[in-house]
Design a protein around this nucleic acid. Sequence first.
DNA 1: TGTTACTTGTGAACACTTTCGCATAGTTGG
DNA 2: CCAACTATGCGAAAGTGTTCACAAGTAACA
Lengths: 206, 206
Amino acid sequence: MTDRLTLGVAARLSTYLRVLTQYRKQGSESISSQEISEYANVNPTQVRRDLSAFGKFGKRGVGYDVKSLTSQIQGILHTGGTHTIALVGAGHLGSAIATSSIFKEHGFRIAAAFDIDEDKVGTAVGDLTVEHADGISARCRELGVVLGVIAVPPESAQMAAEALVDGGLSILFNYTETLLDVPEDVTVHTINPAEEMLYALYFYLT
Amino acid sequence: MTDRLTLGVAARLSTYLRVLTQYRKQGSESISSQEISEYANVNPTQVRRDLSAFGKFGKRGVGYDVKSLTSQIQGILHTGGTHTIALVGAGHLGSAIATSSIFKEHGFRIAAAFDIDEDKVGTAVGDLTVEHADGISARCRELGVVLGVIAVPPESAQMAAEALVDGGLSILFNYTETLLDVPEDVTVHTINPAEEMLYALYFYLT
DNA sequence: TGTTACTTGTGAACACTTTCGCATAGTTGG
DNA sequence: CCAACTATGCGAAAGTGTTCACAAGTAACA
Protein backbone atom coordinates (compact mmCIF):
# COMPACT_ATOMS: atom_id res chain seq x y z
CA MET A 1 0.00 0.00 0.00
CA THR A 2 2.89 2.33 0.64
CA ASP A 3 4.53 0.90 -2.44
CA ARG A 4 3.99 2.55 -5.74
CA LEU A 5 1.67 0.84 -8.19
CA THR A 6 3.20 -0.52 -11.36
CA LEU A 7 1.85 0.77 -14.64
CA GLY A 8 0.07 -2.49 -15.36
CA VAL A 9 -1.82 -2.59 -12.09
CA ALA A 10 -2.74 1.10 -12.30
CA ALA A 11 -4.08 0.60 -15.83
CA ARG A 12 -6.11 -2.41 -14.84
CA LEU A 13 -7.51 -0.73 -11.74
CA SER A 14 -8.70 2.11 -13.96
CA THR A 15 -10.43 -0.40 -16.18
CA TYR A 16 -12.11 -2.05 -13.21
CA LEU A 17 -13.23 1.37 -12.08
CA ARG A 18 -14.89 2.01 -15.43
CA VAL A 19 -16.60 -1.37 -15.31
CA LEU A 20 -17.83 -0.76 -11.75
CA THR A 21 -19.12 2.71 -12.61
CA GLN A 22 -21.17 1.32 -15.49
CA TYR A 23 -22.26 -1.72 -13.55
CA ARG A 24 -23.66 0.49 -10.83
CA LYS A 25 -25.69 2.43 -13.42
CA GLN A 26 -27.31 -0.85 -14.37
CA GLY A 27 -28.50 -1.22 -10.80
CA SER A 28 -26.38 -4.17 -9.68
CA GLU A 29 -25.02 -4.05 -6.14
CA SER A 30 -22.66 -7.00 -6.19
CA ILE A 31 -20.14 -8.19 -8.76
CA SER A 32 -17.80 -11.18 -8.99
CA SER A 33 -14.20 -11.23 -10.14
CA GLN A 34 -15.47 -13.37 -13.02
CA GLU A 35 -17.85 -10.66 -14.19
CA ILE A 36 -15.28 -7.90 -13.89
CA SER A 37 -12.80 -9.99 -15.82
CA GLU A 38 -15.18 -10.53 -18.73
CA TYR A 39 -15.70 -6.83 -19.31
CA ALA A 40 -12.06 -5.98 -18.68
CA ASN A 41 -10.69 -8.76 -20.91
CA VAL A 42 -8.43 -10.23 -18.23
CA ASN A 43 -8.24 -13.42 -16.17
CA PRO A 44 -10.46 -13.59 -13.05
CA THR A 45 -7.49 -14.59 -10.87
CA GLN A 46 -5.75 -11.46 -12.04
CA VAL A 47 -8.63 -9.34 -10.82
CA ARG A 48 -8.61 -10.97 -7.40
CA ARG A 49 -4.84 -10.69 -7.14
CA ASP A 50 -4.89 -7.00 -8.08
CA LEU A 51 -7.53 -6.23 -5.49
CA SER A 52 -6.25 -8.42 -2.68
CA ALA A 53 -2.93 -6.59 -2.75
CA PHE A 54 -4.68 -3.68 -1.02
CA GLY A 55 -6.96 -5.48 1.40
CA LYS A 56 -9.81 -7.95 1.60
CA PHE A 57 -12.58 -6.20 -0.24
CA GLY A 58 -14.64 -9.20 -1.26
CA LYS A 59 -16.94 -11.64 0.48
CA ARG A 60 -16.30 -15.32 -0.18
CA GLY A 61 -19.19 -17.00 -1.90
CA VAL A 62 -20.68 -13.62 -2.80
CA GLY A 63 -18.35 -11.28 -4.63
CA TYR A 64 -17.56 -7.60 -4.25
CA ASP A 65 -19.88 -4.80 -3.22
CA VAL A 66 -19.93 -2.51 -6.24
CA LYS A 67 -20.27 0.72 -4.29
CA SER A 68 -17.56 0.09 -1.71
CA LEU A 69 -15.14 -1.43 -4.19
CA THR A 70 -15.54 1.69 -6.31
CA SER A 71 -14.49 3.89 -3.40
CA GLN A 72 -11.62 1.58 -2.52
CA ILE A 73 -10.16 1.76 -6.03
CA GLN A 74 -10.71 5.51 -6.17
CA GLY A 75 -8.75 5.71 -2.95
CA ILE A 76 -5.89 3.62 -4.30
CA LEU A 77 -5.68 5.71 -7.48
CA HIS A 78 -6.13 8.98 -5.55
CA THR A 79 -9.14 9.95 -7.62
CA GLY A 80 -11.08 11.55 -4.87
CA GLY A 81 -10.40 15.14 -5.91
CA THR A 82 -11.00 16.92 -9.16
CA HIS A 83 -8.33 17.41 -11.77
CA THR A 84 -8.45 20.37 -14.06
CA ILE A 85 -8.00 20.01 -17.81
CA ALA A 86 -7.34 22.53 -20.58
CA LEU A 87 -8.57 21.56 -24.01
CA VAL A 88 -6.90 22.97 -27.10
CA GLY A 89 -8.88 22.59 -30.32
CA ALA A 90 -12.64 23.02 -30.67
CA GLY A 91 -13.18 21.00 -33.84
CA HIS A 92 -14.99 17.69 -34.04
CA LEU A 93 -12.58 15.90 -31.77
CA GLY A 94 -12.43 18.74 -29.25
CA SER A 95 -16.21 18.92 -29.17
CA ALA A 96 -16.46 15.18 -28.70
CA ILE A 97 -14.13 15.40 -25.73
CA ALA A 98 -15.82 18.45 -24.23
CA THR A 99 -19.29 16.95 -24.37
CA SER A 100 -18.38 13.49 -23.11
CA SER A 101 -19.61 12.67 -19.64
CA ILE A 102 -16.75 10.25 -19.10
CA PHE A 103 -14.41 12.88 -17.74
CA LYS A 104 -16.87 14.25 -15.24
CA GLU A 105 -17.57 10.77 -13.91
CA HIS A 106 -13.93 10.18 -13.17
CA GLY A 107 -13.06 13.43 -11.46
CA PHE A 108 -11.87 15.48 -14.39
CA ARG A 109 -13.12 18.95 -15.11
CA ILE A 110 -12.45 20.67 -18.39
CA ALA A 111 -11.83 24.21 -17.21
CA ALA A 112 -11.24 25.94 -20.53
CA ALA A 113 -11.32 25.28 -24.27
CA PHE A 114 -9.16 27.11 -26.77
CA ASP A 115 -9.02 27.50 -30.54
CA ILE A 116 -7.00 29.61 -32.94
CA ASP A 117 -9.92 30.08 -35.32
CA GLU A 118 -11.56 33.47 -34.70
CA ASP A 119 -14.90 32.11 -35.88
CA LYS A 120 -14.94 29.53 -33.13
CA VAL A 121 -13.85 31.89 -30.35
CA GLY A 122 -16.92 32.87 -28.34
CA THR A 123 -19.00 29.90 -29.44
CA ALA A 124 -20.01 27.15 -27.04
CA VAL A 125 -18.64 23.62 -26.76
CA GLY A 126 -20.37 21.63 -24.09
CA ASP A 127 -20.85 24.12 -21.26
CA LEU A 128 -17.69 26.05 -22.09
CA THR A 129 -17.10 29.15 -24.18
CA VAL A 130 -14.19 28.81 -26.60
CA GLU A 131 -11.34 31.20 -25.82
CA HIS A 132 -8.60 32.39 -28.16
CA ALA A 133 -5.44 30.30 -28.26
CA ASP A 134 -3.35 33.38 -27.45
CA GLY A 135 -4.53 33.15 -23.87
CA ILE A 136 -3.55 29.53 -23.25
CA SER A 137 -0.50 30.10 -21.05
CA ALA A 138 -2.00 32.84 -18.92
CA ARG A 139 -5.34 31.10 -18.42
CA CYS A 140 -3.72 27.76 -17.54
CA ARG A 141 -1.76 29.41 -14.74
CA GLU A 142 -4.83 31.32 -13.58
CA LEU A 143 -7.03 28.21 -13.47
CA GLY A 144 -4.47 25.84 -11.97
CA VAL A 145 -4.70 23.41 -14.86
CA VAL A 146 -2.70 20.18 -14.42
CA LEU A 147 -3.36 18.39 -17.68
CA GLY A 148 -3.50 19.57 -21.27
CA VAL A 149 -5.38 17.90 -24.10
CA ILE A 150 -4.26 18.58 -27.66
CA ALA A 151 -7.03 18.02 -30.20
CA VAL A 152 -5.96 20.31 -33.05
CA PRO A 153 -4.94 19.60 -36.66
CA PRO A 154 -1.55 17.84 -36.79
CA GLU A 155 0.31 20.91 -38.05
CA SER A 156 -0.72 23.02 -35.05
CA ALA A 157 0.03 20.40 -32.42
CA GLN A 158 3.60 21.52 -31.67
CA MET A 159 2.44 25.11 -31.20
CA ALA A 160 -0.32 24.01 -28.86
CA ALA A 161 2.13 21.92 -26.86
CA GLU A 162 4.48 24.85 -26.43
CA ALA A 163 1.71 27.14 -25.24
CA LEU A 164 0.60 24.55 -22.68
CA VAL A 165 4.16 24.01 -21.45
CA ASP A 166 4.48 27.79 -21.13
CA GLY A 167 1.39 27.66 -18.97
CA GLY A 168 3.26 25.45 -16.54
CA LEU A 169 1.78 22.07 -17.51
CA SER A 170 3.90 18.94 -17.52
CA ILE A 171 1.35 16.33 -18.60
CA LEU A 172 0.04 16.48 -22.14
CA PHE A 173 -2.39 14.19 -23.91
CA ASN A 174 -1.79 14.33 -27.63
CA TYR A 175 -4.65 13.16 -29.85
CA THR A 176 -2.79 13.97 -33.06
CA GLU A 177 -0.23 11.80 -34.81
CA THR A 178 2.41 14.56 -34.58
CA LEU A 179 5.61 13.82 -32.65
CA LEU A 180 5.89 16.57 -30.05
CA ASP A 181 9.21 17.97 -28.94
CA VAL A 182 8.94 19.06 -25.33
CA PRO A 183 11.28 19.72 -22.38
CA GLU A 184 12.48 16.65 -20.52
CA ASP A 185 10.26 17.15 -17.52
CA VAL A 186 7.11 17.12 -19.64
CA THR A 187 5.37 13.82 -20.39
CA VAL A 188 3.43 13.33 -23.59
CA HIS A 189 0.80 10.60 -23.77
CA THR A 190 -0.15 10.00 -27.35
CA ILE A 191 -3.61 8.61 -27.98
CA ASN A 192 -3.86 7.06 -31.37
CA PRO A 193 -6.99 5.00 -32.01
CA ALA A 194 -5.52 3.52 -35.19
CA GLU A 195 -2.52 2.27 -33.26
CA GLU A 196 -4.64 0.12 -31.01
CA MET A 197 -6.53 -1.22 -34.01
CA LEU A 198 -3.27 -2.13 -35.64
CA TYR A 199 -2.08 -4.41 -32.93
CA ALA A 200 -5.53 -5.64 -32.02
CA LEU A 201 -6.00 -6.84 -35.58
CA TYR A 202 -2.69 -8.64 -35.52
CA PHE A 203 -4.24 -11.25 -33.29
CA TYR A 204 -6.99 -12.01 -35.80
CA LEU A 205 -4.92 -12.12 -38.97
CA THR A 206 -3.46 -15.58 -39.53
CA MET B 1 9.15 -15.15 -36.35
CA THR B 2 6.85 -18.13 -36.57
CA ASP B 3 6.02 -17.47 -32.93
CA ARG B 4 3.10 -15.33 -32.12
CA LEU B 5 3.85 -11.83 -30.83
CA THR B 6 2.85 -11.08 -27.28
CA LEU B 7 0.47 -8.23 -26.71
CA GLY B 8 3.21 -6.02 -25.31
CA VAL B 9 5.53 -6.42 -28.25
CA ALA B 10 2.72 -5.93 -30.78
CA ALA B 11 1.62 -2.76 -29.01
CA ARG B 12 5.14 -1.36 -28.95
CA LEU B 13 5.80 -2.22 -32.57
CA SER B 14 2.67 -0.28 -33.48
CA THR B 15 4.00 2.68 -31.56
CA TYR B 16 7.35 2.47 -33.29
CA LEU B 17 5.51 2.37 -36.59
CA ARG B 18 3.71 5.58 -35.76
CA VAL B 19 6.97 7.24 -34.75
CA LEU B 20 8.67 6.11 -37.95
CA THR B 21 5.78 7.28 -40.12
CA GLN B 22 5.96 10.74 -38.59
CA TYR B 23 9.72 10.82 -38.59
CA ARG B 24 9.75 10.14 -42.30
CA LYS B 25 7.41 13.07 -42.90
CA GLN B 26 9.99 15.27 -41.22
CA GLY B 27 12.50 14.18 -43.84
CA SER B 28 14.88 12.13 -41.71
CA GLU B 29 16.26 8.96 -43.27
CA SER B 30 17.95 7.40 -40.27
CA ILE B 31 16.85 6.98 -36.67
CA SER B 32 18.49 5.54 -33.54
CA SER B 33 16.92 3.33 -30.90
CA GLN B 34 17.47 6.25 -28.54
CA GLU B 35 15.34 8.57 -30.65
CA ILE B 36 12.57 6.03 -31.11
CA SER B 37 12.57 5.37 -27.39
CA GLU B 38 12.12 9.03 -26.50
CA TYR B 39 8.99 9.41 -28.59
CA ALA B 40 7.64 6.02 -27.58
CA ASN B 41 8.30 6.49 -23.84
CA VAL B 42 10.28 3.27 -23.46
CA ASN B 43 13.86 2.22 -22.76
CA PRO B 44 16.25 2.23 -25.77
CA THR B 45 17.37 -1.33 -24.98
CA GLN B 46 13.76 -2.37 -25.18
CA VAL B 47 13.48 -0.97 -28.68
CA ARG B 48 16.59 -2.82 -29.84
CA ARG B 49 15.47 -6.02 -28.17
CA ASP B 50 12.02 -5.82 -29.77
CA LEU B 51 13.48 -5.30 -33.21
CA SER B 52 16.38 -7.75 -32.99
CA ALA B 53 13.95 -10.57 -32.30
CA PHE B 54 13.01 -10.45 -35.98
CA GLY B 55 16.37 -9.84 -37.63
CA LYS B 56 19.26 -7.39 -37.77
CA PHE B 57 17.66 -4.29 -39.14
CA GLY B 58 20.10 -1.70 -37.83
CA LYS B 59 23.64 -0.59 -38.63
CA ARG B 60 26.03 -0.28 -35.70
CA GLY B 61 27.24 3.23 -35.18
CA VAL B 62 24.47 4.57 -37.41
CA GLY B 63 20.99 3.47 -36.46
CA TYR B 64 18.03 2.22 -38.46
CA ASP B 65 16.97 3.20 -41.96
CA VAL B 66 13.54 4.75 -41.46
CA LYS B 67 12.07 3.54 -44.73
CA SER B 68 13.18 -0.06 -44.54
CA LEU B 69 12.43 -0.41 -40.83
CA THR B 70 8.92 0.83 -41.56
CA SER B 71 8.38 -1.95 -44.10
CA GLN B 72 9.90 -4.54 -41.79
CA ILE B 73 7.52 -3.68 -38.96
CA GLN B 74 4.57 -3.55 -41.34
CA GLY B 75 5.55 -7.04 -42.42
CA ILE B 76 5.74 -8.31 -38.85
CA LEU B 77 2.34 -6.84 -38.00
CA HIS B 78 0.83 -7.96 -41.33
CA THR B 79 -0.22 -4.43 -42.19
CA GLY B 80 0.39 -4.66 -45.88
CA GLY B 81 -3.22 -4.97 -46.92
CA THR B 82 -6.19 -2.77 -46.26
CA HIS B 83 -8.67 -3.45 -43.51
CA THR B 84 -12.23 -2.34 -43.87
CA ILE B 85 -14.04 -0.49 -41.10
CA ALA B 86 -17.68 0.33 -40.48
CA LEU B 87 -18.37 3.42 -38.42
CA VAL B 88 -21.57 3.73 -36.44
CA GLY B 89 -22.39 7.24 -35.26
CA ALA B 90 -21.89 10.42 -37.26
CA GLY B 91 -21.77 12.91 -34.43
CA HIS B 92 -18.70 14.85 -33.31
CA LEU B 93 -16.72 11.75 -32.41
CA GLY B 94 -17.74 9.87 -35.55
CA SER B 95 -16.80 12.86 -37.71
CA ALA B 96 -13.47 13.17 -35.95
CA ILE B 97 -12.74 9.53 -36.69
CA ALA B 98 -13.97 9.70 -40.29
CA THR B 99 -11.86 12.73 -41.15
CA SER B 100 -8.67 11.61 -39.43
CA SER B 101 -5.84 10.69 -41.77
CA ILE B 102 -4.39 8.30 -39.21
CA PHE B 103 -6.44 5.37 -40.40
CA LYS B 104 -5.57 5.77 -44.05
CA GLU B 105 -1.89 5.92 -43.22
CA HIS B 106 -2.02 2.61 -41.41
CA GLY B 107 -4.00 0.59 -43.91
CA PHE B 108 -7.51 1.13 -42.62
CA ARG B 109 -10.35 2.19 -44.86
CA ILE B 110 -13.65 3.38 -43.46
CA ALA B 111 -16.08 1.82 -45.91
CA ALA B 112 -19.34 3.10 -44.52
CA ALA B 113 -20.75 5.42 -41.86
CA PHE B 114 -24.13 4.96 -40.24
CA ASP B 115 -26.43 6.99 -38.03
CA ILE B 116 -29.94 6.55 -36.71
CA ASP B 117 -30.77 10.25 -37.01
CA GLU B 118 -32.74 10.86 -40.24
CA ASP B 119 -31.32 14.37 -40.46
CA LYS B 120 -27.80 13.04 -40.69
CA VAL B 121 -28.56 10.32 -43.24
CA GLY B 122 -27.47 11.53 -46.66
CA THR B 123 -25.06 14.17 -45.35
CA ALA B 124 -21.31 13.84 -45.78
CA VAL B 125 -18.70 12.92 -43.17
CA GLY B 126 -15.19 12.94 -44.60
CA ASP B 127 -15.64 11.45 -48.07
CA LEU B 128 -18.51 9.20 -47.01
CA THR B 129 -22.25 9.64 -47.19
CA VAL B 130 -24.02 8.73 -43.97
CA GLU B 131 -26.34 5.74 -44.35
CA HIS B 132 -29.28 4.78 -42.14
CA ALA B 133 -28.49 2.49 -39.21
CA ASP B 134 -31.16 0.04 -40.40
CA GLY B 135 -28.78 -1.08 -43.11
CA ILE B 136 -25.80 -1.86 -40.89
CA SER B 137 -25.95 -5.66 -40.99
CA ALA B 138 -26.65 -5.97 -44.70
CA ARG B 139 -24.05 -3.41 -45.75
CA CYS B 140 -21.34 -4.89 -43.51
CA ARG B 141 -21.76 -8.26 -45.19
CA GLU B 142 -21.85 -6.67 -48.62
CA LEU B 143 -18.68 -4.66 -48.04
CA GLY B 144 -16.70 -7.35 -46.26
CA VAL B 145 -16.15 -5.22 -43.18
CA VAL B 146 -13.86 -6.75 -40.53
CA LEU B 147 -13.93 -4.14 -37.80
CA GLY B 148 -16.71 -2.05 -36.31
CA VAL B 149 -16.31 1.28 -34.57
CA ILE B 150 -19.03 2.38 -32.17
CA ALA B 151 -19.15 6.15 -31.71
CA VAL B 152 -22.76 6.72 -30.71
CA PRO B 153 -24.36 8.07 -27.51
CA PRO B 154 -23.93 5.60 -24.63
CA GLU B 155 -27.58 4.53 -24.64
CA SER B 156 -27.44 3.40 -28.28
CA ALA B 157 -24.16 1.51 -27.99
CA GLN B 158 -25.65 -1.90 -27.25
CA MET B 159 -27.99 -1.60 -30.24
CA ALA B 160 -25.13 -0.64 -32.51
CA ALA B 161 -23.09 -3.57 -31.24
CA GLU B 162 -25.89 -6.00 -31.97
CA ALA B 163 -26.34 -4.71 -35.51
CA LEU B 164 -22.61 -5.05 -36.19
CA VAL B 165 -22.50 -8.56 -34.76
CA ASP B 166 -25.50 -9.39 -36.98
CA GLY B 167 -23.43 -8.16 -39.87
CA GLY B 168 -20.88 -10.85 -39.12
CA LEU B 169 -18.25 -8.76 -37.35
CA SER B 170 -16.30 -10.13 -34.41
CA ILE B 171 -14.03 -7.19 -33.58
CA LEU B 172 -15.63 -4.08 -32.13
CA PHE B 173 -14.05 -0.86 -30.97
CA ASN B 174 -16.26 0.80 -28.43
CA TYR B 175 -15.69 4.53 -27.88
CA THR B 176 -18.52 4.83 -25.37
CA GLU B 177 -18.38 3.99 -21.68
CA THR B 178 -21.22 1.46 -22.01
CA LEU B 179 -20.49 -2.17 -21.12
CA LEU B 180 -21.45 -4.19 -24.18
CA ASP B 181 -22.91 -7.66 -23.93
CA VAL B 182 -21.84 -9.66 -26.97
CA PRO B 183 -21.49 -13.33 -27.95
CA GLU B 184 -18.36 -15.08 -26.71
CA ASP B 185 -16.59 -15.08 -30.05
CA VAL B 186 -16.81 -11.30 -30.35
CA THR B 187 -14.04 -9.14 -28.87
CA VAL B 188 -14.78 -5.65 -27.61
CA HIS B 189 -11.95 -3.15 -27.30
CA THR B 190 -13.05 -0.22 -25.22
CA ILE B 191 -11.32 3.07 -25.83
CA ASN B 192 -11.76 5.41 -22.93
CA PRO B 193 -9.59 8.52 -22.94
CA ALA B 194 -10.45 9.30 -19.33
CA GLU B 195 -9.23 5.89 -18.27
CA GLU B 196 -5.74 6.52 -19.52
CA MET B 197 -5.74 9.94 -17.87
CA LEU B 198 -6.73 8.33 -14.62
CA TYR B 199 -3.78 6.04 -14.36
CA ALA B 200 -1.37 8.44 -16.02
CA LEU B 201 -2.17 11.01 -13.36
CA TYR B 202 -1.57 8.50 -10.60
CA PHE B 203 2.14 8.72 -11.29
CA TYR B 204 2.17 12.48 -10.73
CA LEU B 205 0.03 12.66 -7.60
CA THR B 206 2.05 12.17 -4.42
C1' DT C 1 45.83 5.08 -41.10
C1' DG C 2 44.77 5.76 -36.27
C1' DT C 3 41.80 7.69 -33.06
C1' DT C 4 37.51 8.98 -31.28
C1' DA C 5 32.67 8.89 -30.97
C1' DC C 6 28.61 6.47 -31.78
C1' DT C 7 25.20 2.75 -31.89
C1' DT C 8 23.64 -1.94 -32.52
C1' DG C 9 22.84 -6.72 -30.85
C1' DT C 10 22.84 -9.91 -27.10
C1' DG C 11 24.27 -13.00 -22.82
C1' DA C 12 23.05 -12.98 -18.34
C1' DA C 13 20.90 -11.25 -14.25
C1' DC C 14 17.06 -9.51 -12.27
C1' DA C 15 12.38 -8.27 -11.60
C1' DC C 16 7.75 -8.61 -12.35
C1' DT C 17 3.30 -10.83 -13.83
C1' DT C 18 0.28 -14.40 -14.48
C1' DT C 19 -1.75 -18.65 -13.53
C1' DC C 20 -2.72 -22.92 -10.95
C1' DG C 21 -4.62 -25.18 -7.20
C1' DC C 22 -6.87 -25.28 -3.14
C1' DA C 23 -8.10 -24.07 1.69
C1' DT C 24 -11.43 -21.09 3.59
C1' DA C 25 -15.70 -18.75 4.20
C1' DG C 26 -20.27 -17.31 3.01
C1' DT C 27 -25.05 -18.64 0.99
C1' DT C 28 -28.99 -21.32 -0.21
C1' DG C 29 -32.32 -24.91 0.12
C1' DG C 30 -34.10 -28.89 1.95
C1' DC D 1 -28.33 -28.21 10.75
C1' DC D 2 -26.21 -30.30 6.98
C1' DA D 3 -24.95 -30.71 2.14
C1' DA D 4 -24.06 -28.60 -2.12
C1' DC D 5 -22.61 -24.60 -4.32
C1' DT D 6 -20.22 -20.42 -5.05
C1' DA D 7 -16.40 -17.21 -4.92
C1' DT D 8 -12.52 -15.10 -2.49
C1' DG D 9 -7.55 -14.93 -1.04
C1' DC D 10 -3.17 -16.60 -1.38
C1' DG D 11 1.22 -19.88 -1.48
C1' DA D 12 3.94 -21.49 -4.85
C1' DA D 13 5.37 -22.33 -9.53
C1' DA D 14 5.81 -21.05 -14.11
C1' DG D 15 6.25 -17.77 -17.43
C1' DT D 16 7.46 -13.04 -19.33
C1' DG D 17 9.48 -8.71 -19.61
C1' DT D 18 13.17 -5.41 -18.67
C1' DT D 19 17.60 -3.70 -17.96
C1' DC D 20 22.65 -3.87 -17.50
C1' DA D 21 26.98 -4.17 -19.38
C1' DC D 22 29.85 -4.79 -23.08
C1' DA D 23 31.77 -6.74 -27.44
C1' DA D 24 31.64 -5.68 -32.17
C1' DG D 25 30.73 -2.94 -36.23
C1' DT D 26 30.53 1.85 -38.56
C1' DA D 27 31.68 6.58 -39.56
C1' DA D 28 34.16 10.87 -39.53
C1' DC D 29 38.11 13.31 -39.39
C1' DA D 30 42.74 14.62 -38.52
